[in-house]
Each structure stands twice: as structure tokens, then as C-alpha cells.
Design a protein around this nucleic acid. Structure first.
Lengths: 212, 212
DNA sequence: GCTATTGGGAAGCTACACTATCCATGTCAA
DNA sequence: TTGACATGGATAGTGTAGCTTCCCAATAGC
């Protein structure tokens, strides 16, 4: 298929596809002549993945490029991607003073050790967790209980997530599932959490039966 | 205190504070003369909250303004804010075709009904969940199991979240806790989930004992 | 042959979150 | 009192990200 059909199948405008090609988010099509290229279903799939990571995952273009690069490695290591490529999707500008973040980092590390979590010391998720913990403290919230409860819950989710990854037949599919499951999973979990919060809130603060 | 001290206490540059004042993210200081204003600790708190919602929550300025407006209502309704103001923090550009999203919405609604969740039909979290579900399908993932597992987990988290909210003594504090807990909670949960995923992945795919 | 489309690249656009500059007024140490 | 510096308020400018427009020569398809 040519670029117009690729555009039509995915709903992505032709100039945007050209932009993604330039940015390396989409591999170039097979050139049949100096200015004619052919695209296939893998391009359709890849393009849909890019849009989903952009629109739902809100990942910057550069992060998506890195992620896809890891996905395209000839001998993919699922654990490697989970541990290194994916967490970069969490990075936030540090908002608190370094001292507070360092103290929070110690608490995160202590918690991980106590739980026996096999997580690399330089895993970005550790730092991300510490920064969020510091942010909680910045706004005067006591999260000692919440941290442990969330860690319990995270353990349970991770088991489901890895089952979801393991369900894929080959390494390539597992990687795809890991990326999609992690990024979109965050959003799905957040949305379901909001619904469950509203439900729980309705139970606690009095039920309104008008629109449920 | 004056603007320079406010800036020094929060680490936010003076021009940025002026910008926030203009945008209504920060209430104006008490004018002591036509061009002199006094700020207090509530401004410090509010400014820290704004930065945390920006840096960790990644909320756009306009959303933060709306959220703070809801926070400042004289007779705050915690349930109202949880159900209406907060979910707008989830909204994503629709990436899938309308038909797919509609089908996903039906599945979300059916799930909510089956679980007896007291959630408004027009709650934005329903639509957000449907859009993420549609995105999963766009990239060819089967999420039937995952949806139920995540919903289970969401129920558990929500109980903890509401306990966290209930711990605040007054209505104002509860609202603050609801906003902070929801927005920062998403990020904390995501970071802990990445750590737990890496741990679970290490267990499944073979342990590397080198850096844990 | 003729029109529309293609791949490719450069420049322009829009939105957002600041940041810089200006100015009249005010503070405060010397 | 005086003079350097800070302040509130306003307007304009900056940088980045993600497109979008415009252009070109080459080609497809009628």
C-alpha cells in the first residue's frame, strides 16, 4: 500500500506520517523507485502503536522512538525493557528540594529491601517513586500507610501484568505486551481507580441513587 | 511576606509567581498599598500544590485552575470533587474510531453495573476507561482478564484512598487529600507498579543477583 | 501527454508554560 | 533626604513540542 492508504487505514494525516518517518517512529517503506515506497500491515500496526503511546500514554516523541528502538532489537530481552526502557516514561521534573527527595529515596529503598523486591539500584522507577513520595510530603500529606498499601497492591498488579506478558507466544509479542500493558495499564488503572473512588466515596458519604 | 520571600521559600522564580497570579492559580496577596502586597503561609502551601500538580501530575494550567476553584468553594462537597472535578485529569484525545470506543464503553458500563459500582453515568472516568480499553484493542491486545483483575485492584486501592481522605479532620483537608491522593497517587502507584513488575519479571525470567 | 500523487525536505504554525522588559510607585539603609 | 533597589502590574518575547504547509522533482495511472 502507499502512504495515502496507510493514512486512510489509521486516520493519521499524510503529513503526520511523513513527520513520523522523519523522526524515526516508523521504519521507511520499501522503495520501489526513487520516489515511490510500499508500506504493509506492520506499518499500520506500528502507526497505531505510536498514536496510542502518544494519545493515551502521553509519551514524548523522543521517548517513543527509544522505546520502539528497544522493541526492534534483534534479540529482545523482556526483562531488560521492563527494567530500563519503560521506566523512563515516568520521569518528572524534580519539584522538591534535593534533601527531601534523598530522604524519600531512602524510604523507598528500605521498603524494596524489606519486601525482597529484585529491583536494580539504578532502576528509574525507584527515583520516580522517591520523587512522588517527596511531593506528597511537600504538600503536607502523611503517606506512611498509603505507601505500604500501594506497594501491596503493586505486587498484585505486577503478577497480573506478567501473566499478560507471558500469554504472548513469542519474545516479540511479549515485548509488545510489556510495553502496551505498562503504558496503557497505567491509564486503565487510573480510570478504574477514579470510578472505584467515586463508588467508595458514595458509600462513605451517602449514596445518591439518581444516576447510577 | 513579599513576593521575593515567597519565591525563596518555594523555589519558584518571581516572574513565574506573577504569571500564576495572572492565571488565577494563586489568590492575590493582601494589598497594603497600590503596588505592595503581602503573602502568607497559605500562599506558600498553594504554590507548592500548584508545582506538584504541574510537575508530578502534569496537569495543564487551566485544569489546575478549575481544580483549585473547586477546592476553594465555600461549602465543599468531597464526593462532588471526586466525581467531577478530578476525572478531567484523565482526559485523552480519542485515538480510536468512535465505534470501537462505544463498544468499549458498553463493556465498562456492564462491568460497573455487574460490580454494583455507584458511579454517575456521565462520570468522565467511564469514558476515559472506555478509551483506554479501545486503545488496547487498537494495538491487538486481549484485555478481558486484565480488565477484571484491574477492577478488583481498583476496588482495594479506592478503599485505602478513601481512608486517606477520611483521616483529614475537616472538609477542607479532606478535599485537599482527595485531590493530592488522586493525582499523586496515580504517579506513586505507577512507579511502584514498575518496580513490582521488574521484581516479578526477575522471578519469572530468571534472577539476576548483581544489582539488587 | 497530462493530471494527480508520491517521497522528501524546509519552513511555518499553534499551544503552552514560562521569561524578559518596562514602568510608576514604594521601601529602606545611609 | 536621597538614591539604590524591590514591587505590582502589564505587555511582549522565548523555547519546545507536535504537527502542518509549501515546495520540488519524479512517477503513476489514465
Amino acid at each position: 500500500m502507499r502512504i495515502a492508504e496507510l493514512s486512510q487505514k489509521t486516520g493519521v494525516p499524510v503529513p503526520t506520517i511523513k513527520y513520523y518517518l522523519r523522526e524515526g517512529l516508523l521504519p521507511p517503506g520499501e522503495l520501489t523507485s526513487p520516489n515511490q515506497a510500499r508500506y504493509d500491515d506492520r506499518h499500520v500496526q506500528r502507526l497505531r502503536l505510536v498514536r496510542v503511546l502518544l494519545d493515551i500514554g502521553r509519551l514524548p516523541i523522543a521517548t517513543i522512538r527509544d522505546l520502539l528502538l528497544a522493541l526492534d532489537q534483534p534479540d529482545p530481552d523482556v526483562h531488560q525493557v521492563l527494567g530500563e526502557a519503560l521506566p523512563s516514561t515516568l520521569s518528572a521534573r524534580a519539584t522538591s528540594e534535593p534533601g527531601i527527595v534523598e530522604a524519600a529515596r531512602v524510604r523507598i529503598d528500605e521498603m524494596a529491601t524489606r519486601r525482597g523486591w529484585l529491583v536494580g539500584q539504578k532502576a528509574q522507577a525507584r527515583q520516580a517513586a522517591a520523587e512522588v513520595l517527596a511531593a506528597f510530603e511537600q504538600v503536607g500529606a502523611d503517606v506512611a500507610d498509603l505507601l505500604e498499601q500501594y506497594a501491596d497492591v503493586a505486587e498484585r498488579i505486577a503478577v497480573h501484568d506478567l501473566q499478560f506478558v507471558a500469554r504472548a507466544p513469542d519474545a516479540e509479542g511479549k515485548l509488545h505486551a510489556a510495553v502496551v500493558g505498562s503504558i496503557l495499564g497505567d491509564s486503565l488503572l487510573a480510570a478504574l481507580r477514579r470510578m472505584a473512588q467515586e463508588h467508595e466515596s458514595a458509600r462513605m458519604f451517602g449514596i445518591r441513587g439518581d444516576d447510577c
